[in-house]
């Protein structure tokens, strides 16, 4: 009975989350697909043809994996941060807090909802990219594995952001001032070999750099980094963030007075 209850509650949250981003698809799914398609056209096709090769690949092939990752990261994060914050804002989060649902079930529900959107947009963007580039898909398991973990990590990040957010500005600050720069500097558009040694070192402090590179490795089969190490780091991040979220929920930070 109890186990089943938790499962039903979990499903309920996930379905509610998925229904939400599907209902407002013109705000949640369409913009990232259009933006990233424009990147394909402008950087990949127009500018890319002048650039030639990057990291041993056609520029288009080089940036496609990075752009797919960008879509996954941004959409996983923003789904959870906006959904959980808007539930806080409308106070409908109280429905969850009053109900007999363990915190980890609440968290998992939101996180899986965020991953669903991240992966959905990622998948559509991948389909679009097939018009522009041939993706060899070197290793399915590495590709899928890194996408899943990245999406998980950023969904959890979005949750923490939402817990601390007090207004709608707080929802966009981190994506704009932290996430976007880290993605752009994370080797989406260039190989870090182009950088002076010092900036190469700095780039290696950026977690997104490892995610993008591992994903690119999964598709193209080459990478600047050690893939096992990247996975270990992702698992560690996910575990730490999950722990932090549970701790915040237990304390009731931002949701119980």
């Amino acid at each position: 009975m109890y186990t089943n209850h938790k499962l039903i509650a979990f499903e309920t949250i996930v379905i509610k989350e998925v229904r939400r981003f599907m209902r407002i698809w013109s705000q949640t799914m369409l913009p990232p697909v259009i933006t990233i398609s424009l990147y394909f056209v402008i950087f990949g096709n127009l500018v890319g043809s002048r650039i030639g090769e990057m990291g041993g690949y056609r520029y288009m092939e080089f940036i496609v994996p990075g752009l797919i990752m960008m879509a996954v990261i941004q959409n996983s994060y923003s789904n959870v941060v906006s959904s959980f914050f808007s539930q806080k804002f409308q106070r409908s989060v109280e429905e969850l807090l009053v109900a007999p649902i363990p915190n980890y079930v609440i968290l998992s529900g939101f996180v899986v909802g965020g991953m669903a959107r991240g992966l959905c947009v990622g998948f559509i963007v991948t389909l679009v990219s097939l018009f522009f580039a041939d993706l060899p898909l070197y290793s399915l398991s590495i590709t899928v594995g890194v996408v899943l973990f990245t999406s998980l990590v950023f969904s959890l990040g979005g949750f923490i952001n939402a817990v601390f957010a007090n207004n709608f500005d707080d929802v966009s600050i981190i994506p704009t001032f932290v996430l976007t720069p880290l993605i752009y500097l994370g080797g989406v558009f260039y190989s870090i070999e182009l950088l002076p040694p010092f900036w190469q070192l700095v780039s290696r402090l950026n977690p997104i750099f490892y995610m993008v590179n591992t994903f690119r490795y999964g598709i193209l089969g080459t990478s600047d980094i050690d893939v096992a190490w990247a996975f270990a780091m992702l698992v560690l991040f996910a575990a730490l963030l999950f722990g932090a979220c549970i701790w915040l929920l237990r304390r009731g930070t931002g949701i119980r007075s």
Partner: peptide, 18 residues
């Protein structure tokens, strides 16, 4: 939630209670 339908809100609550 202001954006959801009446029946969905009640059904969601039922789901939360298993």
């Amino acid at each position: 939630s202001q954006f959801e339908k009446v029946a969905d809100i009640v059904m969601t609550q039922a789901g939360y209670y298993g």
